[in-house]
Write a protein that binds this DNA or RNA. Structure first.
Lengths: 187, 187
DNA sequence: TCCTTTAGTATCGAGTCGAAACTAGTATTA
DNA sequence: TAATACTAGTTTCGACTCGATACTAAAGGA
């Protein structure tokens, strides 16, 4: 940890990422399949499309199309043509897909995170957020942050009335405010 | 960041890892090729073998054998049969390999790390180290830490005499103390 | 209406990946 | 010493990713 500390941090990130990938060969799925399932679990209803997933993964639409085809054929994901734009599909997890996510091979890593001290968690959280947003900004990629941290999010009174998205001009349920969105802009 | 903070931290790690992988398609190499080159740059002389690389990556020997064959055919890595154990190869980067590492597509991420504040760097460093060592311990994997942090490392006086590895019973040059080792045990 | 853009699919070739069978040195033990 | 077990690495196989490219089809402008 003497000189070149940034290189050391990079190596840690790289190795953790590699180990996560290698562990994610499970239940007959490949790493990218699990990532797609997890994405769909975390995305809000506007972001459950192949295009949004492509941007999230930093992949290409051809590859993502293949991935989704595999997941659909296994009965884990369902496509439904959108009524307002018939080019586009709304993706959703099936009950089987949600069920399978309970056996996510990477949940051991989540447990390892839980076992860190509270202050370590906070520091790690903030460090990773800073790094990710810096890196994403360098490439003009979307952050995929949560609704509630978005500049377009209009919070309503706690009683009754739902929240609202000023960009997409749609109401947002309380339960959706933690979901991630491809249009999110922190602010 | 309300509840389920560990899940959020996990998602950050996963996405950073994915983006690193996707960026590492460059110079005609695949992500795992760059990882192997970086490993060879950081490994000490005892750890420059296919078996050590396999353990580091959490991969299998067949896959790593393929990877090394590809790198050798591109003239980036050289294999030399070890004289003491003729089953085993000593791997080394060629001049061309070292040269190519200067065009590592992931060096932009290292730059992004450099741009973080000093205290953020420290916190990120410590958080990632804690997490990685916890996770590795759960699976009985080798940490691949640095010589200088190893329980078998006997530090010599700063003048003259070289350092020494109590496990492998070999001298360690000052320049090697930052390198990573497949036998390293923190202590 | 023509033209462009956008969402997604289909197909190709190179190469990963895990699994399993294999070769060939080395170490153990009878 | 000879049989046996173990270890380092290679080879081959099939499934699948991945980027690239060409494609279909719907939406949106001019």
């Amino acid at each position: 940890m003497k000189k070149e500390r940034h290189t050391h941090i990079f190596a840690l990130l790289e190795r953790i990422g590699r180990l996560l990938t290698m562990e994610a060969h499970a239940e007959g799925l490949l790493p990218v399949h699990w990532e797609a399932l997890r994405y769909l679990q975390r995305a809000n209803r506007f972001s459950m499309t192949a295009a949004a997933l492509t941007a999230y993964l930093g992949s290409t639409k051809g590859t993502v199309s293949q991935t989704l085809k595999a997941l659909e054929s296994k009965g884990l994901v369902k496509k439904r043509v959108k009524t307002n734009d018939r080019r586009s599909n709304h993706l959703s997890l099936t009950a089987k897909g949600r069920n399978l996510l309970r056996r996510d091979p990477l949940s051991d890593t989540v447990k390892a995170i839980e076992q860190l001290g509270t202050s370590t968690q906070t520091e790690l959280n903030n460090g990773l957020e800073d790094l990710l947003s810096a890196r994403l900004a360098m490439q003009n990629r979307q952050p995929f942050g949560q609704c509630r941290d978005c500049r377009y999010f209009a919070k309503r009174h706690p009683d009754g009335e739902p929240h609202y998205c000023l960009l997409l001009k749609e109401t947002i349920a309380e339960s959706e405010t933690d979901s991630i969105c491809f249009e999110q802009q922190p602010g």
